[in-house]
């Protein structure tokens, strides 16, 4: 039986001072039911009772994820008008469009928790909500598009596959579709880099240079080391997070290290090697100081990405105002549209 989410008032009828104590009892019972659902690996749905902290934590995480999809359109979109073949251009346009679509599902998932998209976008513009720090690096050559697909989408999938089983239903369901599309993007990125790596010496050099620049930021994308991760313990107890940052990082390196061999490209980590005893790859220590610097706003493109999004949003204000004015004048047509 699922919690109905309805509050029962019966206990407070006779004694006016019994209300507070009764509310506490009810709250405790809700909390117990909520935790029981999570512990039995069931999903929490939007109408179910949930602790405020759970709601806030999910809004923060889903919004950050949605913002990442939207800001992530910029570095790759940077190459749409210069894509070197019509086939690559079509693939890239479809990919950037998928990212906009992911942003849409995720904002919708956040809306089920009682915030609206406009509020979240404002928080992004005010710098009070973040997006993935990886998108604060520039895409300097065509090979960067392939490197982002292979490494950045690879790291994103590593992070997101466990989220398909996260405790909040709308987020988990959105992630199922997002992960399918991300897996496709990762293969496309790999294939694009493969073509460059096995092309002319100049193309190979372009691919290697892109991997040199994107490798470490991608390894850092899995988050700060476990000892310093601020939200991890509570998120784990709530069934939002299932594996630690360091576990996910290991999983990511284990996935991409053998792929690099097939690509014929060398990751810029002299300590990267297979460890027979552990059954995993060993790898060097990421520069978490740099991650902190970029997250806190001093990466190469933080200011540019934020300014681009804000400018597009402000330039579109008159269009959104016109749509609202039209809807007010023509309620029937607008409802049907």
């Amino acid at each position: 039986m699922r919690s109905s989410g309805q509050i029962e008032h019966g206990a407070a009828l006779d004694d006016p001072f019994a209300g507070e104590a009764a509310a506490e009892v009810i709250s405790d019972r809700h909390e117990a039911e909520f935790q029981a659902l999570i512990d039995s690996d069931q999903r929490i749905e939007p109408r179910d009772w949930m602790p405020d902290g759970y709601r806030k934590s999910l809004i923060r995480q889903i919004a950050q994820h949605a913002h990442s999809e939207i800001i992530g359109m910029q570095p790759e979109g940077n190459w749409i008008t210069r894509a070197p073949s019509l086939r690559r251009k079509a693939i890239l346009m479809a990919k950037v469009q998928d990212e906009a679509g992911h942003g849409l599902y995720l904002y919708c998932a956040a809306e089920t928790l009682g915030v609206d998209r406009a509020e979240l976008i404002d928080l992004l513009h005010q710098g009070r909500q973040k997006y993935s720090s990886i998108f604060n690096y520039p895409t300097l050559t065509w090979a960067d598009v392939g490197a982002i697909g292979w490494l950045v989408d690879g790291a994103a999938i590593t992070n997101q596959i466990p989220l398909c089983r996260c405790s909040f239903g709308p987020y988990a369901r959105a992630m199922v579709r997002v992960c399918k599309e991300e897996s496709f993007h990762q293969r496309q990125g790999f294939e694009s880099l493969y073509a460059l790596s096995h092309g002319t010496p100049e193309q190979h050099e372009m691919a290697q240079d892109a991997v040199n620049r994107w490798w470490w930021p991608s390894v850092e994308m899995l988050g700060p080391p476990d000892a310093e991760s601020t939200h991890s313990a509570q998120s784990t107890a709530w069934g939002i997070k299932r594996y630690s940052n360091d576990e996910l990082r290991q999983r990511f390196v284990d996935m991409v290290a053998p792929q690099a061999v097939v690509l014929g490209l060398t990751p810029p980590d002299p300590e990267l090697r297979w460890n027979e005893d552990r059954g995993h790859y060993d790898f060097g220590e990421p520069d978490f100081e740099e991650l902190r610097r970029v997250v806190s706003g001093d990466g190469p493109c933080n200011r540019q990405r934020a300014a681009h999004h804000l400018a597009a949003h402000e330039e579109g204000a008159w269009v959104r105002a016109a749509a609202a004015a039209y809807a007010a004048k023509h309620p029937a047509t607008s409802a049907a549209a």
């Binding site: 979109g77 079509a90 346009m93 469009q97 942003g103 597009a312 579109g316 204000a317």
Partner: peptide, 27 residues
């Protein structure tokens, strides 16, 4: 396609790119 990441709403970013993709396929 030059509108990508610049449209007035996210829905229109998707729509304009979608139209651009159709046209590219036709070409």
């Amino acid at each position: 396609a030059q509108w990508s990441s610049r449209a007035p709403t996210l829905e229109d970013d998707v729509a304009l790119t979608n139209i651009a993709l159709d046209l590219l396929g036709q070409a």
